[in-house]
């Protein structure tokens, strides 16, 4: 569905993403994890067309979309959420979601109807007419998800939609994400909540300092010394192994 081919993104002298390649299979939930500042959000921005790649190609459904502007990628079926939420603060919840729904439903009644459906799917059904600015952190995260979903994407890029939620809210959201995939939407998610990544993702890519350092199933990743070192610092894997293989818990 999505192929990222040796993408590099430089900001002046800083290399945020360094020759990263990854594949997302149709119908999968694929994870992208890595320490803070690894370049995950930057890579998302490049995939969604918000930042221009310095080098490399992006293929979506076999098409080279590297030069396409963001709104055309959305029309082609790539939707993203923002790690730092970007609500239309002056609009109500349902109006926010309707902007997404209008992409496939030009008529107002259909767009609003679709927006209501999506709102109840992500648990915003009771807040339709509230101003978006009045939502809590968890409400705003749900709104990000709802708006993106309302565009009826083929590929959904989720950037830390669980960050800032409490454990019970996270437990509520995990089945919602699974349900979205079951309706046929392929998902690529950046997430720090490991419990969610491990239970949702079939395939995980690990980014550290702009490079993809590992790829595999959740259990492969959890046992990968390179991954543990990336998170905990050099030599950590060895130290952990010595202190009776606690690697899996930490990863």
């Amino acid at each position: 569905m999505l192929a990222v081919e040796t993408i590099t993104k430089r900001f002046g002298g800083l290399i945020a993403v360094n020759a990263a390649s990854l594949k997302v299979n149709a119908g999968s939930i694929t994870g992208l994890i890595g320490p803070n500042g690894a370049g995950k959000t930057t890579l998302f921005a490049v995939i969604a067309g918000f930042e221009k790649a310095s080098e490399g190609r992006i293929l979506f459904a076999g098409q080279d979309i590297t030069a396409e502007p963001a709104h055309l990628r959305a029309q082609a079926g790539i939707a993203r959420t923002f790690q730092i939420v970007q609500p239309f603060a002056g609009l109500s919840v349902v109006e926010n979601i309707a902007v997404g729904a209008y992409l496939r439903h030009p008529a107002r009644a259909e767009a609003q109807g679709r927006a209501r459906e999506v709102a109840s799917l992500v648990g915003l059904g009771a807040m339709l007419d509230q101003p978006a600015s009045s939502l809590t952190v968890s409400g705003r995260k749900r709104l990000e998800l709802a708006r993106a979903l309302a565009t009826e994407p083929k590929l959904l890029l989720l950037d830390e939609v669980l960050a800032g939620l409490n454990p019970s809210e996270i437990r509520d959201m995990i089945p919602v994400i699974r349900q979205i995939r079951d309706q046929g939407v392929t998902i690529l998610m950046v997430e720090h909540v490991m419990q969610a990544v491990m239970s949702l993702c079939e395939d995980i890519h690990v980014l550290a300092q702009g490079r993809i350092i590992a790829q595999g199933t959740p259990s492969e990743i959890a046992g990968d010394p390179a991954v543990i070192e990336a998170y905990l610092g050099q030599g950590a894997a060895k130290r952990l192994q010595r202190s009776a293989g606690m690697g899996e818990n930490h990863a």
Binding site: A48, F50, P69, F82, Q86, G90, L91, E95, L103
Partner: peptide
Amino acid sequence: AAVRENEDAARALGVD
């Protein structure tokens, strides 16, 4: 309204 409130979010939702 989307452009007025937040252009980046609008672009992400397919708005030219």
